[in-house]
Simulated scan of single mutants.
Amino acid sequence: MNHNSNTLFVILISVILSAVSSSCIREDVSGNTPQANFESLWRIIDEQYCFLDYKNDVYGLDWDEVYSRYSKRITSDMSDYNLFEVLSEMVNELRDGHVNLSSGYGTSQYREWFDAYPRNFSDSIQSNYLGKDYVITSGLTYQILENNIGYVYCSSFSNGIGDGNLDYMLKEMELCDGIIIDVRNNGGGNLTTAQKLASRFTNEKVLVGYMSHKTGPGHSDFSTPAPVYLEPSNGIRWQRKAVVLANRRSYSSTNDFVNCMKNMPLVTIMGDTTGGGSGLPFTSEIPNGWSIRFSAAPMYDADMNQIEFGITPDIHIDMSEEDILRGKDTIIETACDFLKKNR
């Protein structure tokens, strides 16, 4: 091989190596490998999820230890489906039903936050109380029970509730001895809608809690908690005793609603601890396009207690098996008795 041939050969090899190197660099930059996706998800949670210190205090969660344990399960040749399974298990270490990893295979969810508790609601038994002449308007179902207690069921805050609808409903119930607002199995929706309903139960501006925001990647990097107030409605407001019914499936903006109502002097919360999930949601993506959603702005009650993981009722009561067999709702019955005695 002559000098020119050697020169051409060296140039050719250099070009090939450069091309290979460039393709490797492009793949690394895109980061779409099992390891890169794992690293990305772990880091997003490490820097943005706002309850790592709280979880460490409650049950000893060590997010660095989680990294060490799960990184050993990541291999370069694992399938996307197996990767999704492993990453789903990792986020479930947070024990937070409001953390969801979404992919083409489905959406992960930690279900113990409600499956480990009594259901405390039956729509078939509820129909025994509603009868046949109940009213449905703007996501609210209501009836005046035979014992002259107003009963309002709000299954979701996803639908807007009109001020006119609320005025008419409360006017219809003005002679009732008390009112029940049932938000069991209400998975949330629009926070403004929840606050609109709560504003019908106060005559003055009320401090209902505080909110912080993430200010940095550290687990304790938060802004100073800012107060959150609820203003009274300009429409008809309820002036008698009221009971709010909740269960573990009352979460997200319903959790906020229960928190607001707990600050009202004439309102009693009854049933089971709520499902939590008040923090403002944060959504991000890992390199392969899967999305991760979780709370990134912690919320507190008026006494600076965390409300992300549920609000304890003033009176805890479960539906009894005996009442269920009789077609009775123990929680509704207890609320009616309470309102009759305290009207």
Rank of each mutant, 00 (worst) to 15 (best):
R119Y: 11
I149E: 15
S156L: 03
S155K: 02
T141I: 05
E146V: 06
Y105H: 07
R119A: 13
H98P: 07
Y151W: 07
Y168V: 14
L101T: 04
S158D: 11
S127Y: 03
E93T: 04
Y105W: 08
S156E: 09
L94E: 08
I149V: 15
E112P: 11
T137W: 01
Q126Y: 10
N128T: 12
R119F: 09
A116Q: 12
S138P: 14
L130E: 09
G104A: 04
N147F: 05
Y168K: 10
G104T: 13
T107Q: 07
Y129F: 02
F157D: 03
Y151Q: 07
G106C: 02
L166S: 05
S138V: 14
S156T: 15
Y117E: 15
K171M: 15
Y134F: 08
M169G: 02
N159Y: 13
N100G: 12
N165E: 14
Y151F: 11
S102I: 09
N100L: 12
L130A: 05
E112Y: 13
L94F: 08
Y168S: 15
V99L: 02
K132Q: 14
Y105F: 12
N120D: 13
G164Q: 06
L145E: 09
S138W: 09
V135S: 11
G97L: 01
C154K: 05
T137L: 03
Q143D: 14
S127L: 00
R95D: 12
G97M: 01
D123H: 11
D133K: 00
I149Y: 04
L130M: 08
Y142W: 10
D163E: 04
Y110R: 02
N165V: 15
F121I: 09
L140G: 05
D167W: 03
M173T: 06
W113Y: 15
L140T: 04
T141Y: 09
L145D: 11
Y153G: 14
Y168F: 15
M173S: 08
I125N: 04
C154T: 12
I125V: 14
Q126A: 11
G160H: 07
